[in-house]
Amino acid sequence: MEPKFNGPAYTVGIEEELMILDSSSYALVNRIDDLVEDSPHGEIKPELMESVLEISTRPAADLREAAEQLRGLRRQVRDKAAEHELAIGSAGTHPFAKWEDQRITAAPRYRDLVDELRFVARQEVIFGLHVHVGVDDPDKAIHVANGMRVHVPILLALSANSPFWRGDATGLASTRMPIFRAFPRVGIPPYYADWSDYERRIGFMVDAGVMEDYTWLWYDVRPHPNFGTVEIRAMDGQTHVEHTLGLAALIQAMVKELSEHFEAGKRLADFPYEMLDENKWLASRHGLEGELVDLPERRTVPAKDLARRLYDRLKEHAQDLGGADALEGVLDLIERGDEAHRQRKVYEANRDFTELLRDIVGASAP
């Protein structure tokens, strides 16, 4: 495994998994082949299901450049979909789709995945947001990934956007989280001492034949040596592009803070794994409407208060990185509620999933 953590630091890449919908019924449809095309803004590519489309920006120097690319990609797939009487929506789950109706993409990696995981892979009709941030040293990348583990719950709470599943209100803010939890090698990642420790332990798994390479690790945070980034994978897909960009700006600022922590020779606090995982569950259950344990304290605080504290603390880092404007998307989530809250509000008016999806499609447009 050859690490490519050679800079520049703090570049940003954003990946969004989007729903392909019939433009009249808003049902999820297996039409990825109609939508894949070249793009001047980044990549448009298939995912595991033929009803899922992924857009990926190229590495951007700052959030302004990333925002331009992401809006361009959303605009392009929206317009291409309209040509085929389709629509594009963004959320953590489709409110009434069933996995039994989805086809697996005809790509060797995905066929291998289904062959290995069976039902666990087939039922994964979920839509996530992944953010990559460039790091310029392999040991620093491990330090950042270790430090990001404590932030996973608040990132999930901020991004919670999947309160419905298979035509039912689940009572969760992020239903996507427990669905994906059925996969192996997911969730809060292990703590690694340094790059050599990571390389040795991942090499053990590859040599044992349980996975092909490190990309078969689907942890909430992982170093990505081929890209020279730390990738954060914990979030639900966001309906409003401003919220995607706000979360990306917050994550970029977190990576900068942790990188400077490493460069100063400081050690990370040692939080119990089970407490990190419990906080993640609380975030999935309640989103921003609930409480999280305020580590290292042994008390709970409103998730919105914790998010506000992080926003205030990291605002200067975001300013230094050119992401202050994008970071305002996080403030909107704090002040007006996560998107799961917004979905419930729209649905409760008439208890009409078609109306909810029409709203999601409209709000997903850049």
Rank of each mutant, 00 (worst) to 15 (best):
H261A: 07
T57G: 00
F5M: 05
S39K: 01
Q76G: 02
I55H: 00
L331C: 05
D294G: 00
R351K: 15
P163D: 10
L129D: 01
P95K: 03
L247P: 12
G7P: 08
S159C: 08
A264M: 13
G290D: 02
I44P: 03
K4P: 08
M275H: 05
V210M: 15
D320K: 09
L156V: 15
A365C: 04
D207M: 14
R222D: 06
S162F: 07
N146V: 06
V206H: 04
M235Q: 13
L21S: 01
L327K: 03
E199P: 10
D320I: 01
L295F: 00
H41S: 06
I251M: 12
E231W: 11
A157S: 13
I179K: 09
V150A: 09
P184G: 13
M275G: 06
G228M: 09
W195Y: 13
P108S: 15
G167T: 10
R285I: 14
A27I: 02
K304D: 10
W165P: 00
T354P: 04
W165T: 10
N350E: 15
V230M: 03
A283N: 01
V293H: 05
L288Q: 05
I142S: 03
S159M: 07
I88D: 04
E199K: 15
K266C: 01
P366D: 05
V152E: 02
A253G: 15
